[in-house]
């Protein structure tokens, strides 16, 4: 634990944090010059999980709601963009507001009736809703049924057609930075504090004047909107989407990334998502062990959760482990 304290001390220094962040941005921006396409794609995958994890973090980490169907939010965005481009020949960039709108409407329809109840019900409803979305997609013509939508044309950005891996690396890097800013601004605001009060003690939050139902709905909607936008970009990056990309395992993976890094902590969530995307790749080429890499990954996850239930990211100084917002035992429990 000694080294966690050291890292934390460094991070609590504002100047040091800024310097580290600036250096990190420069390094990330220069990386594509030195890396091959395979590594770039792994990093892209890490960015992709970071986006999803940051979206889910608003719901789970900030507000303490348990969402077991986050894949549905990103499926809605991906399919909205896919259908609008393929069937209605829209420009990709114009599908983004549409995707945002559809995601928000879907979140309000699901969250509206559910979030009036105790938070635990949300877990069941989101799980069910995710399955409904997936099965509907598999059985509808407009979503291309089981084969999904393929050959979605790549968009252009100021005349550059986004086709190369490094293009997508940069697009997703920019998205990650935007999502970090959004998450950070929400966290350090009246809205973010209200969400945290709900997570900590719903009754006390109400007593302090927080309209818990509408703030829970707000968190759920923001999370869904972030997932939807990520889905839209995913659709044009992959050029094809199918129901199997949005199954329950995907929802669990995103939730694991959030919990692994440390719920509610932006750097923690980013580290969790990166770990989740990169770790299995490191072992891919090693014989024997490579085939069992998911097994090792599972063992490692258990080990991390046993030793640091509050996630990988170091806590604020002066706080002890256990019972933190990052503790899985506090999710959805009232």
């Amino acid at each position: 634990m000694q080294y966690f304290t050291k890292i934390r001390q460094l991070l609590d220094n504002k100047f040091a944090t800024r310097a580290i962040l600036a250096a990190l941005c420069v390094i990330m921006a220069l990386l594509p010059l030195f890396l091959n396409n395979y590594v770039l794609n792994v990093l892209w995958n890490a960015f992709f999980y970071m986006l999803l994890a940051m979206g889910l973090n608003i719901i789970v980490g900030y507000c303490g709601l348990c969402d077991l169907g986050y894949a549905a939010k990103f499926a809605i965005g991906a399919y909205t963009t896919g259908i609008l481009i393929k069937t209605y020949h829209w420009n990709f960039w114009l599908t983004l507001p549409a995707s945002l709108a559809v995601s928000i409407i879907a979140a309000l329809l699901i969250g509206g009736p559910t979030l009036k109840l105790r938070s635990d019900y949300l877990a069941i409803v989101t799980l069910g809703f995710a399955e409904i979305v997936r099965i509907t997609a598999r059985n509808s013509n407009i979503t291309g049924s089981a084969t999904g939508i393929s050959a979605i044309p790549r968009p252009s950005f100021f005349g550059i057609r986004l086709v190369k891996p490094n293009h997508w690396y940069y697009v997703f890097l920019v998205l990650v930075i935007i999502f970090i800013i959004i998450s950070g601004r929400i966290r350090n605001s009246r809205v973010g504090r209200a969400l945290a009060f709900i997570r900590e003690d719903e009754d006390a939050a109400q007593a302090m004047g927080v309209n818990t139902t509408s703030y829970k709905l707000l968190a759920y909607t923001i999370g869904a909107a972030m997932g939807g936008i990520t889905g839209s970009f995913y659709a044009v990056k992959m050029t094809s989407i199918s129901p199997s990309s949005f199954d329950f395992t995907q929802s669990v993976n995103i939730l694991l990334a959030v919990i692994l890094g440390g719920m509610g902590k932006i750097p923690g969530v980013i580290v969790g998502a990166a770990f989740f995307a990169i770790f299995p790749e490191l072992f891919r080429d090693i014989p024997v062990i490579g085939d069992m890499r998911m097994l090792f990954f599972g063992i490692l996850l258990i080990a991390v959760m046993l030793n640091r239930p509050q996630g990988l990211w170091p806590d604020k100084l002066g706080s002890e482990p256990g019972g933190l917002p990052g503790d899985i035992n506090t999710v959805g429990r009232r």
């Binding site: 601004r185 605001s189 009246r190 809205v191 009060f197 900590e200 939050a205 302090m208 004047g209 917002p325």
Partner: peptide, 30 residues
Amino acid sequence: RLFKNMTVLENVLSGTHSVSKQSIFGALAR
């Protein structure tokens, strides 16, 4: 019933919730 995992300052800020009105748009646009 305090918000146990939050700082004392954040706890007291919860009191100001009902006398302030910043929305999500204010939070994002600053």
